[in-house]
Design a protein around this nucleic acid. Structure first.
Lengths: 242, 242
DNA sequence: AAGTGGTCTAGACCACAAA
DNA sequence: TTGTGGTCTAGACCACTTG
């Protein structure tokens, strides 16, 4: 280990092991040297060697088996993992963001949103449709259903704070304890296509969401429609940095 | 800490902190007690307290800032993360898996696959279309392009080993160093719909892949078409286990 | 029984942030 | 300057796997 290097010892060792995997010295399925062996061989403590292996484990390059050893993972489609980083980045760039409400109404009567939000038909929900544009180009259509709570200060505050700011904006208030999201492919309806300035019948992503507040009440139900060109879902697996 | 518990101290402390976040004791944006404070308060060493906080960090519940503190993350759509676990699980269940090759040919001449694989028009590529069924129900259509290497033992071995076994099966040989995947929504063509026993024009996931071998040559290009009902992409964020 | 990863301690020093 | 997280040591014991 190069103690003069600004790179910590565990990262140096991790790089060393990664390069060993990359060169084929440790092929998929093979076992890495034991952590104690690594520690002795590279003159670091056992904890430091362990931390190095942990880096590879977090990168999905190896699998630890207690009592047996640490094994090099096979690279395959199953190890991939998609995040919404490009989606979140747009919402982080608030200077170039425009939000336009295209529809807002109080819905009474039955409807699937009532069931999801745990309400009865007689209860009211607020439905809001927004076009969110980035750099003056439509980015996503957001449809949301929120419970109408008369004790809450104002409807406007709820719309902005609870549903939008809390849900997607990086900064600002949020009061969600948990949420579930589902990604599906779907077709644009004529009206949706017009709002997004896309072609009707074009396949896009639909991102459903249901968020719960700290009282475990479902409070923010809805979905985003996003062109895959504006939200590329790309995942890299294996070793890319040599 | 309960030393008699089978649960390690760091996990107990992590649960304790998680429950504090869950109860709203540490609301989003607030700072957790310093690791040294936690260690003293709960009678564990600094490393153990640190490990506890690391658990929350891996769960995306907190964000560490060096020199400043550890802060509770806001739960929002941007923190979500989709894996292909349900996809990989099907391929792990090899007892109930059937593979049927519906088309196989050697392609010469220009084509997008040549470019992706870094070949010239005069080179040959092997194109294979497979229907992969799970429990006798069509699960996915896989189209793959592989470089034709005359020095390789047999074409059949390549098809099975390199492209299919290596790419998706949990067990077996694999020789990929890295790969990139892209998920897009698309529409089924009539032929594709027939093969998958789905409706024409139905929106489905298209999962493109390009895998590189240990010589950094792109070797396995292709895509999977999968109904979102057979591969639900669901992500949970925040605190779900109380 | 021997080897492996998993947990844990009681210190130490460093890099960085904020007052 | 003080407090925070980040790295590191040199041990220790435990749980588990494998021969």
């Amino acid at each position: 280990m190069d103690k003069a290097s600004p790179m910590p010892a565990y990262a140096q060792l991790a790089d060393f092991l990664r390069s060993g995997i990359s060169r084929g010295e440790y092929p998929p399925g093979s076992r890495l040297p034991a952590e104690a062996t690594l520690a002795k061989a590279y003159g670091v403590s056992a904890m430091t060697a362990r931390q190095a292996v942990s880096v590879l484990e977090e990168n999905n390059l190896v699998r630890r088996v207690q009592g047996s050893g640490t094994y090099v993972r096979k690279v395959d489609v199953g190890t991939s993992n998609f995040d919404l980083e490009s989606f979140a980045r747009v919402f982080g760039d608030q200077d170039n963001l425009q939000v336009r409400i295209v529809k807002a109404e109080v819905k009474k009567g039955a409807g699937p949103e009532k069931e999801v939000l745990g309400l009865q038909a007689k209860d009211s929900v607020i439905m809001v449709e927004r076009i969110i544009s980035h750099q003056n180009e439509p980015f996503t259509l957001h449809v949301s259903f929120t419970t109408f709570d008369p004790t809450s200060p104002t409807v406007e505050a709820m719309l902005d704070t609870v549903v939008l700011t809390g849900l997607i904006f990086q900064e600002g208030y949020s009061n969600f304890k948990r949420g579930s999201l589902r990604l599906t492919p779907t077709l644009l309806e004529p009206r949706e296509a017009r709002l997004l300035e896309l072609k009707q019948g074009e396949p896009v992503f639909k991102l459903d969401h249901l968020f719960y507040n700290f009282d475990d009440q479902p409070t923010a139900f809805g979905w985003f429609l996003i062109s895959h060109e504006k939200m590329p879902l790309i995942s890299k697996v294996g070793i890319w940095d040599d």
